[in-house]
Design a protein around this nucleic acid. Structure first.
Lengths: 163, 163
DNA sequence: ACCTACCGGTTGACGTGTCAATGATGCTAA
DNA sequence: TTAGCATCATTGACACGTCAACCGGTAGGT
């Protein structure tokens, strides 16, 4: 972090070797962490994190139901992605879809009893895993730092071109 | 970070609301960052980050060639994943596979001229994007902290059960 | 020699994600 | 009225990842 600052290198656009090493460690570790959580959730409940996100949103919805596009916006997915995923979840009986009475061409997504039960059983182990693999792995200061780093990265993503 | 320590809560196993908020922000932002890098690389060079990892390893290999399983170990992939990916890359002419003379049943992966050229063209924009979206988004202290956080998370992943 | 066990690599099934194209339906303006 | 046009959702094609099964060959033990 000391020997060669960007300025000293005269407008260099490329990361240093050390920056690149940290980048790789950072991005690969977070990916591995996601994968591990995914695998834990799968083992504990036969749900994917995608399933979990959908079920969580529906569980918190007033009538355990949401319009498809509202749901997509809520969890930050493209409609196409959600549509594919709902198809798979419907096959497994976790949700149902029906025409929406109020909105033309709207599709109402309903949480089934099986879906609610699966979500209920998944919640505790999932949160415990987050605690074990993330919260307990870091010091309180590191958790704060992680939040700040995420915020800074997110801000950069928002300002740089979406492409 | 101070008001309620885990101990004060009597062996609680679940994250606090604030911890959970940071967790979500952290994991979603890193995923979005990966996706953005992927999309940049795709736009600049028509390569995926998987392609890039393979081409990078082959480029650095003595003869621009590696045995399949050595390559898999080098980039940390399962053999099956690599096999599928090499099939796709071979169809696009980025690499070739041939029987390995020295090792029975071994497969030698060769970098083609087209592969070397695609990698060469991709490198600079890719590193520039890493600098723009990661290095320049953070303060030097945050970069160090990111490295330490990654190391701590990685250590935890290594010690907790692989499942 | 033969049986077995492992090793390196491939394959198939399937879940997941993106992109582009396609219905179906209302809104708006000539 | 009707010709666009946006909106909501679905679909198909394809890339990518994991898991489990498979195959060919070498090596060990009996």
């Amino acid at each position: 972090m000391t020997e060669t600052t960007p300025a000293r290198r005269g407008g260099r656009q490329l990361p240093t070797a050390e920056e690149l090493r940290i980048w790789r460690e950072f991005i690969e570790t977070t990916a591995a962490l996601s994968a591990r959580l995914e695998s834990r959730l799968q083992g504990d409940s036969s749900l994917s994190t995608g399933d979990y996100a959908v079920l969580l949103a529906l569980s918190e919805a007033p009538d355990k139901a949401m319009r498809s596009s509202v749901l997509a916006a809520h969890i930050g997915w493209e409609r196409s992605r959600l549509s594919h995923h709902l198809g798979r979840m419907e096959r497994r009986g976790l949700i149902r879809r029906q025409e929406c009475a109020t909105v033309p061409r709207g599709a109402e997504v309903l949480l089934t009893a099986a879906g609610a039960e699966a979500f209920g059983k998944a919640t505790f182990p999932h949160l415990r895993a987050i605690r074990e693999l993330f919260v307990d792995a870091l010091t309180p200061e590191q958790i704060v730092a992680a939040g700040e780093i995420a915020a800074a990265l997110r801000a950069r993503l928002a300002t740089s071109g979406e492409g």
